[in-house]
Amino acid sequence: MDVLLASSAEAFRLLFSGDAEIWEIVGISFRVSSLAILCAVPPALIIAFVLAYGNFFGRRLLISLFNTFLSIPAVVIGLTLFIVLSRQGPLGDFKLLFTQTAMGLGQFLLCLPILVCMVHVSLQAADRAAWETARTLGASRVRAFFTVIYEIRFGLMAALLAGYGRIISEVGASMMLGGNIAHYTRNIPTAIALETSKGAFAEGIALGMVLLFLAFLVNALLQYVQGKGSINP
């Protein structure tokens, strides 16, 4: 218990004394995860759309597949990508292993199924009439697509949060693909793992609190946006 109390006190001191290294780590986490999820949104929307409105052989199988991907351990994604990106792997020539790109790629693959499944559920819950109304009013497919996305924007927002929550706190794949290189691929979760292995529990807890704080901020933002939405649905 003493350790926990002392660590928490130290955590606050580190956070508010403006420790540059901690904020650099926070910046890397935020940057890589944000970029990963931004890149995942367009393909996720299109896949979810095709799964919801498409009518083709194997659609149900694909839906089950994406649902299964939800429960893949991050380490498995990390290991698979590691093998693919390693110099001896099929994409070895791009020299991506132990870069922010590799880390982002892992996070991209981790949040994609979450986005696909949650947007797909939103689309199914939304009226198919939304799509048809847009189409019969003369909207092109692309236009109707964006109209429907706007209709499910709260579901999309929830999906973004869930996806972001998974990748910002994920350690296995980031450690494997990024290599936890200081000032480059060291993000909050891998730094926590490192500090813990060094026995520097206070720094670990401080970083954990930063993560908590970020998560709280993002959730508060969503609450705010959704609150606005419920006044004017």
Binding site: F30, R31, L38, R153, M157
Partner: peptide, 17 residues
């Protein structure tokens, strides 16, 4: 609202080191 949010994100990413 989504536009504004994504603009914010892009801005942060661009200004990041």
């Amino acid at each position: 609202m989504l536009h504004r949010l994504s603009l914010l994100l892009v801005a942060i990413l661009l200004t990041a080191p």
